[in-house]
Design a protein around this nucleic acid. Structure first.
Lengths: 394, 394
DNA sequence: GTTACTAATGAAGGACTCCATCACAAGTGA
DNA sequence: TCACTTGTGATGGAGTCCTTCATTAGTAAC
C-alpha cells in the first residue's frame, strides 16, 4: 500500500551511495578517502569512483592536502556548499528579515527591513524584495544562484501557501502568498508558519540540537508554537498543528495583558514596550510585577502543560520576545509544569534570538533539498536545481 | 550525525529487493512474477532469482496456477505467513485477552480469561499463561512457533517495560512486566500501553485505516489516548505521550461520574454498569440523562480539543466501553469541537470493539518484525526469529 | 483437428557496481 | 640513506541487474 520503491536498480545503489557520501561530507571539515570510507562503509576503490563522479557533477571538489602528519599526505575532498544558495525570509509584523546561505545552511548575509503591521501588501512585498536584494548585493550573487526560497510568516498557512488568517498582519488574511512570491522569485518557494520554522532552527542549530521531539513556544505579544516530532517538522493533516492558542481554557490570547496592564508600567508607554517594563521590574523583585508574572505564567502553563502531556517532548524551548526574560519566566513555569506533567521535559531558553525564524527558514530549505535528493528518481544522475523560467510566455 | 547506512553493498541491494518483494507479496492474494515485477519495478529475471532465494529460505512458496485465462498459465507465489506466529495480549482490569496470528497479522485464534482488578500478580500471570496456552491449543501450535509476544496493559509503561503506575490494576504499579513476561515466554516480549495499541489497530485495520495522523480516544470507566503520528506509534521521549488525563483543566478523571451519578441509574446498580444506563436513557431522549451526557461531553471535549489543536490529526477515533454509544456521544462532541478547532478532524466510532487492543498488539508485533527486517544487517541472509533458549543453565 | 494468438518461461550475453589485493608513491623521523 | 607510515592506482573477480530471444503451454476461432 503505497510503499516507496526501496530497492531497485544497480544505478539506484550507486545513487544511494553517492547520497550517503554527500551526507558524510556535508557539514564537516574536508575529509580524506579513508575517513569517508569509514563513515560510509564503502571500500576505498568504490568511494574513489563515487567521489570522482560527484566531482565531475560539481557537488564535490578537492582541496590541497595538509602537511605535517605521518605517511603520505592524503587527498582531501569537501562538499561544494557554495554550488547553490538558499534564501530564508521572516515576514513579521514589524520586520522583514532575509538571510542567504549556501547549501550547507551556513548563513552568508542577513538584512532587515522595518515595516509596521498596517503596511499594505504591495509595500510589504517590496520590502521583501529589498531584503532579498540586499542579501544578494552583500554576497555579489543574483537570483539565478538561488535554488530555493523558504518563507516564514505570522498567521495560519495552508499547505498550498495561502494565509487563511493572520492576527499580526491584518492585510495578510486570505492572501495567496505562494502565488505572489512564486511570481516574484524564479525558483521554488516554500511557505510556512514562523513559529514552526523557529522550532526547526532550535532543533537543528539551537538549544535543542539533536533532540527528536521538541516543542517550541513563542512567547511575546503573540503566542505561537512549533513542533518537531521524530526529527521532522510536524504540520498536521491540515497544517494546523500547534494551534493550542485556540483552546479557551488555555487563555493564551489574553495572557500577555497581565504583563501589559501592570502598575509598574509608566504612564503613556506604548503597548509594545509595556511587557518588558514588567518583566524587568519582576527581575528586580517588584511585588506587583512579580504578581503579574505569576498570573501570566498561570495562563501560559495551561497550554504548555497540554502540549507537553500530549507529546512528551524531550525539550521545550522558550523563544520569542519575552524569552529575553527567560530567567524570570522559566522558574515559575517549571514549578507549574512539575505539578502536572507526568515526565518533565527539559526547559530551555532560545539563544538564537531575533534570527530564529530566518535561520529556521534556511533549515527548512536545507531539509527540502535533502528530500529532493533522496526521492530523486530522475535516472542515474543527481538532481540539479529546477531553474524555472520566470514569466516567459510568447 | 547518526544517519543510517542507507546504501551499501551489492548484497544490501539484493536484500532490499528481497524485502521489497516480501512487502509486495504480503497481505495480498498469490501473485505471478509479472505482477510482482510491475509492483516492485524489478525485471522478471531478477525477480525470479529473488523469489527463488526467498523460496529456499522458506519465506515464499509456490501455489498451483489458475486456469481459465489467456496464454500460458503463470506460476503463482505467496508469502508464507504461516511460517511464524505472533501473540498479542491485552491485560485489562477485568479481562485478559490473547490472540494468535500469523506473520501477516491475520488472527487465527482468540481467548479470554476473566479476572478482577484485585487479582494478585501471580494469579494474573497465570491467567495470561492460560490465555496464551488456549490460543496455542486452538491452533495446535507451541511456543516454539511464536516469534514475538506483544502486550498491551493499562497504566503507564516505561520504555523498558516497567509499569510505573496503573490505576486500573493496583498491583501492577511498580511491576517489572517485561522481566516477568520475558521469563515466561522464550521469545521477544514487547510491552506497551493499551490505548496506544488500540490506536494502532484503528490505524491499521479499523476505521482510520490509511490515515497518517490519528488520535484514538478511549472513553470508558477510565480515559486514555493513543497517537499515531506520521503512520507510526508516538510514544514520546519518556513514553508518556498522550497522558492528557493529567491536565486538571480537562477534568478527565472525574468526567465519567457525570454518567454514573445520573438519577436514571437504578438504585443499587454496580458502578461499572451505571454509565450504560445513562447512555441508553439519553438515546431514548430522557432529559436528565441528556443533561448528564452534556456535562460529560463538556469535560471530555476540553481534552480532545487540546489534543486536536496540538496535533491536527486527520481522524479522531472514539473507542472504549462508551463508544458503543457513539451515536449519543459524537454529535455533542462534534458540536463542541467545531466551536474551538481550527480544522475539524473526522470523528469516527471504533468498530473493532473489545478486540481493539489485542489486534493492536498483533499489529505492533507485525511492525516490530518489519523493523527487524529492514534494519537487518546480519550479512546477506534475511533474519530468522531469535529463538532464545528458555531457562537453560547447566 | 488445425491454426493463430496470448502470455509466461528459461537461458544467454552484456553491463554495471562493488570488493580484495598488491605494487608503488610520497611524506616523516632516526 | 633507511625504515616506517599512510595513501594511490590498477588488476582481477564476484555479484546483481537488465535486455533479448527462442520456447512452451494454454485459449479461441476456423
Amino acid at each position: 500500500m503505497g510503499n516507496p520503491p526501496l530497492g531497485g536498480d544497480l544505478s539506484r545503489l550507486r545513487q544511494l551511495n553517492a547520497l550517503s557520501t554527500i551526507r558524510a561530507l556535508r557539514g564537516s571539515a574536508p575529509a580524506t578517502l579513508s575517513a569517508l570510507s569509514a563513515r560510509t562503509g564503502l571500500s576505498r576503490p568504490s568511494l574513489k569512483e563515487v567521489v570522482g563522479e560527484l566531482t565531475s557533477l560539481g557537488w564535490v571538489e578537492e582541496v590541497p592536502p595538509t602537511s605535517g602528519g605521518m605517511g603520505r599526505p592524503a587527498r582531501r575532498y569537501r562538499f561544494r556548499a557554495d554550488r547553490g544558495h538558499l534564501v530564508g525570509i521572516d515576514i513579521g509584523a514589524h520586520n522583514v528579515r532575509a538571510a542567504l546561505s549556501n547549501l550547507d545552511g551556513t548563513v552568508l548575509a542577513e538584512t532587515r527591513q522595518a515595516v509596521v503591521p498596517e503596511t499594505p501588501v504591495r509595500e510589504r512585498m517590496e520590502a521583501i524584495g529589498r531584503a532579498v536584494g540586499g542579501c544578494l548585493a552583500l554576497t555579489g550573487l543574483t537570483m539565478a544562484d538561488v535554488w530555493t526560497v523558504a518563507v516564514g510568516t505570522t498567521g495560519i498557512v495552508t499547505p498550498e501557501g495561502v494565509v487563511t488568517y493572520s492576527a499580526g498582519i491584518p492585510a495578510w488574511t486570505g492572501l495567496d502568498l505562494a502565488g505572489l512570491l512564486g511570481a516574484m522569485f524564479p525558483c521554488e518557494v516554500l511557505i510556512e508558519n514562523d513559529s514552526r520554522l523557529a522550532a526547526l532552527a532550535e532543533a537543528r542549530r539551537g538549544v535543542a540540537r539533536g533532540a527528536r521531539d521538541v516543542v517550541f513556544l513563542h512567547v511575546g505579544r503573540r503566542m505561537g508554537t512549533g513542533l518537531i516530532i521524530d526529527g521532522k517538522l510536524h504540520r498536521g493533516f491540515g497544517a494546523a498543528a500547534g494551534e493550542i492558542v485556540m483552546l479557551p481554557q488555555a487563555r493564551w490570547f489574553d495572557a500577555p495583558d497581565h504583563l501589559n496592564n501592570c502598575p509598574v508600567v509608566p504612564e503613556g508607554t506604548p503597548v509594545e514596550d509595556a511587557a518588558s517594563h514588567t518583566l524587568a521590574a519582576a527581575r528586580d523583585g517588584d511585588p506587583a510585577a512579580l504578581a503579574a508574572v505569576e498570573r501570566y505564567v498561570d495562563d501560559l502553563a495551561v497550554g504548555v502543560a497540554a502540549i507537553v502531556l500530549v507529546l512528551d517532548p524531550e525539550i521545550a524551548v522558550l523563544g520569542g520576545g519575552f524569552s529575553r526574560s527567560a530567567d524570570v519566566l522559566l522558574p515559575p513555569l517549571r514549578r507549574r509544569l512539575e505539578a502536572v506533567c507526568l515526565r518533565m521535559p527539559e526547559l530551555r531558553a532560545s539563544t538564537l534570538g531575533d534570527e530564529c525564524v530566518v535561520f529556521g527558514a534556511i533549515d527548512h530549505a536545507v531539509d527540502h533539498l535533502d528530500r529532493q535528493l533522496f526521492t530523486a528518481d530522475s535516472g542515474t544522475s543527481l538532481p540539479v536545481p529546477l531553474t524555472r523560467d520566470a514569466v516567459s510566455r510568447s
